[in-house]
C-alpha cells in the first residue's frame, strides 16, 4: 500500500531544487522503480517531485562541440526513437533495446535508471563505455562527475540529498569505432541481467590497431565496473586470439560477483569471461 504523500509538479529546475531541499522528498520521473519501492514500503517519501514537465530535462541535444547532452527525464523509448543516438551512440541504443519491456521503456528514464543504483542497470555499462559525465546540480551550484564515480554500492550513489542529476553528457565520439552490448539472461524480455557487458573500441588510423577501448560490466559486483586493467591489455594493439583470452581472464579477475536468485557467483565468473571473449571476437570480426 502506498503511504500518503504530497505531490508537486515542478515547472523549472529551481522548483525541483527548492523542493528537494525538504526532508523525505523524492524525485518522480518515470516511477517504474519508485512506485514498486513505495508499494512494498521500502521507501516512504513525504513529498514527490514530478520532474516530467521541467523543460530541457527531456531533450537530447547535439552540442556544437560534438558532445551529446541527454536530459535526465529522457525515457528509454525516447532513446530508441532518437536517430541521433542510434547513429552516434549505438551502444546506448543497444542497452535501451534490452531493458525491461515496452511498457517500462515508455516511462523509465535514463536519470532514474542511473540514480536507482542497481548493479544490473542497462544504461550504465553503455554510459561508462561512452565516458559519460553526469551534471549534478544543487541550489548553490553544480558539479560534473564521471559516471564511473557515481555508484557506491547496490542502490547507493554519491548523490547528496540536496542534489539533482539533470543531465548526462556524452563526449564527442571518435570515428572508426565499434560497440557491442550483451545481456545474458534466461529469457528475452522482462529480464534482469545475470551478467551484462558493454564494449566500445576506437580504432587508430592504422588498420585494426586499437586506439582506445572501454569494457564495462553489470551484475558482477556491488556496482557496475569498468575493467581498466583488461582495457590496458588491448590499448595500442590489434586484437588477436591470445589477447582475447588474456583480456577475458583479466576481466574475470577484476569482478566480485555474488550468488543470488538469478545465478551463482561461479556462473557469473564464467559468463563474464565468456561474454568478454564474445564481444571481442565480434569486434575482431568487424575489423
Amino acid at each position: 500500500m502506498i503511504m500518503d504523500f504530497e505531490y508537486f509538479r515542478a515547472k523549472s529546475l529551481q522548483e525541483v531544487l527548492l523542493m528537494k531541499g525538504k526532508s523525505r522528498s523524492e524525485i518522480l520521473a518515470g516511477g517504474t522503480d519508485l512506485l514498486v519501492r513505495m508499494k512494498t514500503g521500502e521507501t516512504n517519501p513525504k513529498i514527490l517531485i514530478d520532474i516530467k514537465k521541467v523543460p530541457d530535462l527531456n531533450r537530447i541535444i547535439l552540442n556544437p562541440d560534438g558532445s551529446i547532452s541527454i536530459g535526465a527525464s529522457v525515457t528509454f523509448s525516447d532513446i530508441l526513437e532518437s536517430d541521433l543516438l542510434k547513429q552516434e551512440c549505438p551502444i546506448l541504443y543497444k542497452g535501451a533495446q534490452v531493458m525491461g519491456t515496452t511498457q517500462i521503456r515508455n516511462r523509465a528514464t535514463i536519470g532514474g535508471n542511473i540514480c536507482h543504483g542497481s548493479p544490473a542497470a542497462d544504461s550504465v555499462p553503455p554510459l561508462m563505455c561512452l565516458g559519460a559525465q553526469l551534471l549534478l546540480i544543487n541550489r548553490n551550484g553544480e558539479r560534473w562527475l564521471p559516471i564511473e564515480n557515481f555508484h557506491e554500492g547496490p542502490r547507493k550513489t554519491c548523490l547528496k540529498p540536496e542534489e539533482f542529476l539533470c543531465e548526462i553528457k556524452i563526449p564527442p565520439i571518435q570515428p572508426r569505432s565499434f560497440c557491442a552490448y550483451l545481456k545474458h539472461g534466461v529469457r528475452k524480455s522482462l529480464e534482469i541481467a545475470i551478467v551484462s557487458i558493454g564494449l566500445l573500441v576506437f580504432f587508430s588510423d592504422e588498420e585494426g590497431v586499437i586506439d582506445n577501448i572501454r569494457i564495462s560490466l553489470g551484475s558482477v559486483s556491488h556496482i557496475p565496473v569498468r575493467s581498466k586493467e583488461a582495457e590496458d591489455i588491448l590499448k595500442g594493439k590489434k586484437i588477436t586470439k591470445d589477447l582475447i583470452e588474456k583480456t577475458a581472464l583479466t576481466v574475470q579477475k577484476s569482478i566480485n560477483p555474488i550468488s543470488d536468485l538469478r545465478g551463482s557467483a561461479e556462473y557469473r565468473y564464467e559468463m563474464a569471461y565468456m561474454l568478454t571473449k564474445r564481444v571481442l571476437q565480434e569486434c575482431c570480426n568487424h575489423v
Binding site: 534466461v186 529469457r187 528475452k188 524480455s189 522482462l190 529480464e191 534482469i192 536468485l261 538469478r262
Partner: peptide, 12 residues
C-alpha cells in the same frame, strides 16, 4: 514476482 520467477514471454 514475475521478474524472478521466469515465465515464458512473447519474445521467447
Amino acid at each position: 514476482n514475475f521478474s524472478d520467477y521466469k515465465l515464458q514471454t512473447m519474445a521467447d
